[in-house]
Design a protein around this nucleic acid. Structure first.
Lengths: 340, 340
DNA sequence: ATGAAAGCGCTAACAG
DNA sequence: CTGTTAGCGCTTTCAT
């Protein structure tokens, strides 16, 4: 009732502003959207009218009439994982500065859900879209291709982006860590991660590691794939479990720093020598990694930077400046500390 | 050029689907939005047409015609702070399940920015809105009131919500921690936080603590307000600094667990006895808090739950079920561990 | 620099 | 259960 009344007669539209200012609606529209195309006198009058009526622009109508909005969908697989949040934060930073809004979608690592989200989001006539990952359903691909506007795939760096791509090679990251561990003399290396089927980037790191192990002629162990969602709490029990079931293991490459930090903290508590009894490595480069004892060897990925670059690429294209490069490998840095 | 072409003639609309299915556009609309109001036969035919043409609903047009969208704006002061992200995740969980989309805004702890965001977001005719905090500009208040649809203010629990409110009293949380510290015999207690002017909830915790200190006749110290953004990295240096400049301090109440964990990790490294030399307490109840040594005394706030409840309240109202309560105090739990 | 007319794609309201 | 008519509030032409 109340809402109905509001939308029926309470709403203040361009017309009302126009009437009060004594101009035509289109002039008000211009004054609001392209201020310099309207004379100072009228603009001031209009601004006063807007203020007086408390007019709020209806972006829905605007988007329909101009067949485009300033809302950028951002699709990520999870919000419980810091990593994606940081990417979103990076995008946000640039987007908000440039006057764009973000619409947030969460796939829960489910490609069908992802496809549904893409479809819904495209219905909002966004000027572009940012999506985590390069592995999508065929249908998602088709939707995005046909859509024909800038799309940035982030997190991974891969060969055949739909449009633009900003990320790093997780496969190479895995290789790098394996090489590092081998250099330090470890021979019985195992990969531990959570939900490895869904989190295929972690899987890629495993594969990278596995390849190096194979080439070096070292024991190739199947990855330890935990069912739970990745949490700092999970690392400790995982460490204990690996040590019990595979006592000959001398190094663990955890899928991420949360797990690795959890393991180190537990080792400390239980008096397990790191790296004496077993070496521990992580991935991400969280701030925490350098604070624990021993400090954690890890691979730093520039998450927020990925977000910033992705957004920048997108906006460059929207401003019809062509982006620097269609594909950006932000790379990574292995930081060797005391835990290995 | 390419995009222009796409939007000019490449776009597939309801009409096209209707034509192909041999029905009127409104029937297609109904088949898509209220499937049970259309006969099975037609619905199937329509679905096939949709599939065949790869039709994507235009939500902008839908929202304009029906004067309402299913996009819920969520406004938070920061994305770098886990706490808000968890609330957003909670909201997301419920929203996505219910078929709503989130539009994310970040105020950077700036009330003017907040007002601008509210104004923009209202232009998208959202059915409701969720915003962190209860401290807004007068103008923001007016906008939200006049808007007349469900609004949920989250994080704090306060006396005069615009509409609905889900959160906890940070003042009481501060009191609780002060009482705990006093009970354990600490007498020289100081509060340490980052950006205390912007993060007024942390300030409220300080005030709560200060009040209890005053009542107990203990030394009241000004809070240590650090300039940097709150990070686990900041905790260590802060600890060292406090110990150097206020050597008589015997307990530190950090504004959050990140800082407190950073301090504990540093203490461990430097051989500072916790709680022997100084006791340390935090706020939030991060998973990490129980893993460090000594385990951290902290106050657990149900962040994700706040998000879930807020979303639930909102959707209850949208379904014209009136929400259970207009104001929900989710409360908090003090967990005393070894660090105090 | 300003205005008039037309329509974006969809759905509310009513009719059948 | 299905269709017709009208219009959401704005912006895009195209004039002036």
């Amino acid at each position: 009732m109340r809402t109905a009344k509001l939308t029926t007669d309470g709403t203040i539209t361009l017309k009302h502003v126009a009437a009060l200012a004594g101009v035509s609606p289109i002039t008000v529209s211009r004054a609001l959207n392209k201020p310099d195309t309207v004379s100072d006198k009228l603009r001031e009058k209009i601004e006063r009218a807007v203020e007086q009526l408390g007019y709020v622009q209806n972006h829905v109508a605007g988007a329909l009439a101009s067949a485009g909005s300033n809302v950028i969908p951002v699709i990520v697989p999870s919000l419980s994982n810091t990593v994606f949040v940081e990417v979103v934060a990076g995008i946000q930073e640039i987007a908000q500065k440039t006057g764009y809004q973000l619409m947030l979608g969460n796939t829960d690592y489910d490609l069908d859900q992802e496809c549904a989200l893409v479809s819904t989001f495209l219905g909002w006539s966004p000027p572009g879209l940012i999506i985590a990952g390069m592995k999508h359903l065929e249908r998602t691909h088709t939707l995005l291709k046909r859509y024909g506007k800038p799309v940035v795939e982030v997190m991974e760096y891969g060969a055949h982006p739909i449009d633009m791509n900003v990320g790093l090679s997780h496969y190479q990251a895995g290789e790098a860590m394996a090489k590092h561990l081998i250099e330090r003399g470890y021979k019985q290396i195992v990969f531990v991660g959570c939900q490895l089927t869904a989190d295929y980037r972690a899987w890629q790191r495993y594969k990278g590691m596995d390849r190096v192990l194979a080439k070096a002629g070292l024991t190739r162990r199947p990855p330890v794939a935990l069912e739970q969602t990745s949490h700092v709490q999970v690392g400790g029990p995982a460490l204990i479990d690996v040590l019990a079931t595979q006592p000959d293991v001398d190094a663990i490459f955890f899928a991420n720093d949360d797990l690795a930090v959890g393991a180190i903290l537990r080792a400390q508590r239980d008096g397990i020598a790191i790296p004496g009894r077993v070496a521990i490595a992580g991935f991400n480069g969280l701030g925490l990694a350098e604070l624990v004892m021993p400090a954690l060897t890890t691979i730093v990925s520039p998450r927020m930077e990925i977000g910033r670059i992705a957004a920048q690429q997108l906006f460059d294209r929207l401003a019809s400046r062509s982006p620097r490069r269609r594909r950006v490998d932000v790379s990574f840095e292995l930081i060797a500390r005391q835990s290995t």
